[in-house]
Structure formats: C-alpha cells, structure tokens
Amino acid sequence: MEKDKGPLLVLLGPTAVGKTALSLEIAKSWNAEIISGDSMQVYRGMDIGTAKIKQSEMDGVPHHMIDICDPAQPFSAAEFQDRARAAISDIHSRGKLPFIVGGTGLYVESLCYQYQFADIGSDETFRQRQEQYAEEHGSVALHAKLEEIDPEAAERLHPNDQRRIVRALEVYHLTGETFSSQQANQKRESPYELLLLGLTMDRAELYRRIEKRIDVMLEEGLVGEVERLLGMDAPPHTVPMQALGYKEIAAYLRGEMSYEAAVERLKRDTRRFAKRQLSWFRHMKDIHWIDAGENFHNNLIRIHAIIAGKFQGHLEYKSNQSFF
C-alpha cells in the first residue's frame, strides 16, 4: 500500500441487492464507518422510499452522509464529493476504515477518483424552458432529448431524474460538449488506496426482491411519507418530487392515476433503475464482483479474504479467524 494514500473500501450494487446487511457485517469486522453513497438518503424525511437504514438497525456502526439537508435544498454531486471527502479524512484521523456503501454511480465514482467539477455556469432561462417542456410533454420526452445528443448519459440517467437530465442538456447547451464526454476525460487515478466490491444477482431474483421491497415500503407508510412531502409545497421539479418512489406516489395522490397503476409504474421504474445502476458500474474498473444470490456466509468469507489481501498490513483485522 502506498504510504501517502489512505485506504477506502467501497461496496456498490443495484437497489435491493442486499448491500445494507452485508455492509454492517463488513463494517463491524473491519472497524469501519459507513458513508452513504446514495444521493437521496442525504434528505431528511425521505426515509421509507429511500430504504434508509434506521438508527436501531445500525448495530453501533457510525453512518455518515445521511439526513444532512432538507428536501427543498439543492444538493449536488460536487457538494457530496466535498463533504464525503471531509468525512473520509475524519475517519482516517481516528484510525478507522472509511467504507462507502451505495448505488448512485456519479456520486460514488466522483468520490473514488479525482473528478473535477468544472464551473461551467448556468443558464436559468434554458433550464426553465426544459422544465416547462417536461411539464408539457412528460419526463420521458425530456429524457429522449438527452438521448439524441448524449446516448451514454441517457443510458445512465433514469427518465425521472429530471434535475440531472436538465443539467446534462444545459452542459451541452453551454459548452457544445456532452456530459458523458466530459466525464470520460476525467482522471481515473484515485487519491485513495481503493478497494471496490460489487454485488450482483440473477436478474429475475433481483426483480423479485425489488417488488417485495416496494410492497414492504407501502406497508410501512410510503404513501403517508410522500403526502407529508407534498404538504411542504415543494415545486414538482424539486428532488423529492422527482425521486424514484416519490414521483409515482405523488401522481396518485394528485389524482393523476390509480393507486394500482402508480404501484405498477413504481415497480417497473425501479427495475429499470437497477438496470441503469448495473450499466454504470460496469463502466468502472477493478471491481471485485460478488454474486449476492450465493450463500451469505460464504460471500462474507470471500469478501474478508479480498479485504485482508488489500488492507491486512494497514488495519487491524477483527473478524473471527475461523473464517479462513
């Protein structure tokens, strides 16, 4: 391990693949603190729809980058990068292992590598025109505009992710360069001694887990959570109203579709989102892929061996040595 680089452990994977349960076992074994790599879990009050871990479930493992801003407050990948890097430095200073867990590709990748978010500026008039276009023609039509000029970015962004779609269109409008081409020119050198673990799963089983998770979210009160957010009078284009799970239920609450249609759309869009997550991660290099559909205990053994091979000389390994 390079002496001037601190260690950074990362666990990636699509929604509902089982990151939370596995991350807690890994964190307890390696004296780690978890930094959420989920772009929606930064918002207070967005708990059920983001599958945010409860305080009672953390099992003593510190978690960072959760509940740090209000839903109406803008929060960018650049801000996430700044605040997460500060958290990493703090964790290092206390002799612990920083551990990124999440599924928002841009957020995690920008943190792992030395991404520079250029100050391209903005064009508020252009931005408002795109938002108006989405209101009149729908999010899919706005997504199609991006697909015409930047198919790679369109593949990675869900049609509901209106804020990032508008920004990608705005970047092209201001610079003449696509968002994906600018990302491709970013340095791929990490400021950390980086270890990337990725969870994957048979597609049919993942989709079954996604649908079951959504059923549980609804039982736990997702509709009420969205209703409370709507009560805050947030404009339709703000993050909470465009987020997966919130946009669909909000449409039902506004009388734009039936409850059954909203749930079916949510399940469909979440399946598509998971597919996009995997597509993003497949572009990243040096990921150790783990089949999360395999035996949990056996996967832990394999993961502990991978981590030990990378970090054993730097950090005290605390797992039961009988694993090996």
Rank of each mutant, 00 (worst) to 15 (best):
E2D: 15
K3Y: 11
T15C: 11
A16L: 11
K19T: 11
L22S: 05
L22E: 08
S23E: 02
L24Q: 00
I26C: 05
K28G: 06
S29R: 05
A32N: 09
E33W: 15
I35R: 04
G37F: 06
M40I: 13
Q41H: 06
V42M: 05
D47R: 14
D47I: 15
K52V: 06
H64C: 07
M65W: 09
I68H: 05
P74H: 02
F80N: 08
S89A: 15
D90N: 12
L97Y: 08
L97D: 08
V101G: 12
G102P: 06
L106T: 07
S110F: 03
C112G: 05
Y115T: 11
Q116T: 14
D119T: 14
D123Q: 04
E124V: 13
Q128P: 03
E131P: 00
A134W: 00
E136N: 12
A141M: 07
A153W: 01
L157A: 00
L157S: 01
H158R: 04
H158F: 03
N160P: 02
R164N: 00
I165S: 04
V166H: 06
H173V: 00
T175G: 02
S180W: 09
S181C: 03
R188V: 10
S190K: 01
L197N: 01
G198I: 03
L199F: 04
D202Q: 10
E205T: 15
R209I: 04
I210V: 15
E211D: 15
E211S: 14
I214P: 12
M217C: 10
V223M: 14
L229A: 08
M232R: 09
M232V: 02
P236Y: 07
L244W: 01
E248W: 00
Y252L: 07
Y259I: 08
K267N: 10
R268A: 11
R272V: 08
F273T: 08
F281R: 03
I287L: 06
W289V: 01
N299M: 09
I301P: 06
Q312H: 14
S322Q: 13
